[in-house]
Simulated scan of single mutants.
Amino acid sequence: MKKAIQLIDQDLTRFEEYFSKAVKSNVPLLDRIMQYIVKRKGKQMRPMFVLLSAKLGGEITTTTYRAASLVELLHTATLVHDDVVDESTERRGFFSINALWKNKVAVLVGDYLLSKGLLLSLNNNDYKILQILSEAVRQMSEGELLQIEKARNLNLSEEVYFSIIKGKTASLLSSACAAGASTTFCEEKNIEKMQQFGEKVGMAFQIKDDLFDYSAENIGKPTGNDIKEKKLTLPLIYTLNNCAPTLRKKIIYIVKNENRDPEKVGFVINAVKNAGGIDYATKKMLNFRDEALALLHEFSVSEIRDALEDLVRYTTDREY
């Protein structure tokens, strides 16, 4: 990721200025919360993908910075709402908005961020970018609802799992790449190619996140959290589809009824590891990564392409 940051270091600084202005409010409480959010932003991978995707096609413009700001506004809004839905009190090692200001305020903050993003595009006639990102919001909502629906019976196929993560995670990264590309590329086929590239990276990114749930490392969120929330991710889906019926029955019972018992959760984690669920999910993740790189390599060799490849590899090699 260092190569990517070096190439767009100044662009990231300018993006941060755009983002800080975009979230500013005249309401004291809201402004305090916005400052809290700005100071605790994550690795900013999505804005980086926007900026690099744009640079692949030409020089970054003010429209590119607005696209990156819109992506980050929408992403932050979904994180705030997700913490409310998941009843999570932590985000990236810090207290979540709902933990500090309660659910009602957190929901309104998420709505505010969404509206600021929409207005940022509308006020500048960035209709193409708005269309791309609005489609992502639709897919993200559908992905989350599909996951909630399927979690009830704990009978999830790989096909449905991939549909879920395509919507809830990959769609935003896909749109980030397409939005960035749309500010510099003239040919629609290149924008579509970057959209497909982003989707593949997003799929790999989410599987990596799911694998963290089976890690003993301190990654900023509780290990085994997906099990506690009855979320069926790829390592567990593979295990349930390939283990003995008695073990499958026991795992399902634990996930349904004993998912808050650390010892029982530990049993499920070990069962997944022993069944090869981790290795299988890792293989699928790397397949998506390689498909993304194959699309990227259809563009001419350049330091920007190398930086994007570096960023893609980081998504699957990261330790948190």
Rank of each mutant, 00 (worst) to 15 (best):
L295P: 02
G117E: 03
T184Q: 10
I5L: 15
L130H: 09
A54G: 09
K55C: 03
F197N: 12
K150G: 05
F288G: 14
L240R: 05
V50N: 03
S182F: 11
L52N: 04
G57C: 13
I278F: 08
K193S: 11
S96I: 03
S302W: 01
N125V: 02
L52Y: 09
R40I: 07
Y65R: 08
A22M: 04
H81V: 00
N270C: 03
V268G: 13
V38C: 07
N103T: 08
H297G: 04
S53G: 08
A4Q: 07
S53H: 06
K249Q: 11
V312T: 14
M140C: 06
E319P: 01
F185M: 06
F185W: 05
L119E: 09
L7R: 08
G180C: 14
L236V: 12
L293T: 11
F19I: 04
K2F: 01
S121V: 01
K2A: 06
L114I: 11
K55N: 10
A176W: 13
L12K: 07
K43I: 04
E303N: 14
K250Q: 07
N270W: 02
M1P: 01
L154C: 11
I148F: 11
E187R: 05
L286K: 06
F212T: 05
I97T: 02
K150T: 08
F49I: 14
L211E: 07
V160M: 09
D209Q: 13
A54F: 06
A68Y: 05
D317L: 04
D261M: 08
K284F: 06
F49D: 02
K230L: 10
K264R: 10
L12N: 13
E192V: 15
Y112A: 10
K273C: 10
Q196P: 00
L240S: 09
K284L: 10
D279C: 03
R32P: 00
D86T: 00
N123K: 14
G117K: 12
E17C: 13
V71M: 11
H297K: 15
I237T: 07
A275N: 12
V27G: 01
K193D: 15
Q139L: 15
H75D: 04
I269P: 00
E90R: 14
A216P: 02
C186E: 03
V71G: 01
K168L: 12
R305D: 00
R289L: 14
R152A: 11
I33N: 11
A181D: 03
H75S: 09
T64L: 08
K39I: 13
E142I: 03
E303D: 14
N155W: 12
Y280W: 07
L29R: 15
Q35V: 07
H81A: 05
I254Q: 14
N242D: 08
R91W: 01
L247P: 00
F162M: 15
F288R: 13
E149D: 06
I37T: 09
Y214C: 05
E17D: 11
E59D: 10
M34T: 01
N103C: 02
K24W: 12
Q147P: 00
F94P: 02
E298A: 02
N124C: 11
E158I: 02
G180S: 15
E192A: 13
T76G: 03
E59T: 05
L146W: 01
L146M: 12
T63F: 01
L145K: 08
S69Y: 05
N242P: 00
V80A: 15
F288M: 09
V255N: 05
A292G: 05
T76W: 06
G110C: 14
N218T: 09
S215T: 06
I148P: 01
G224R: 00
K21F: 03
R46H: 01
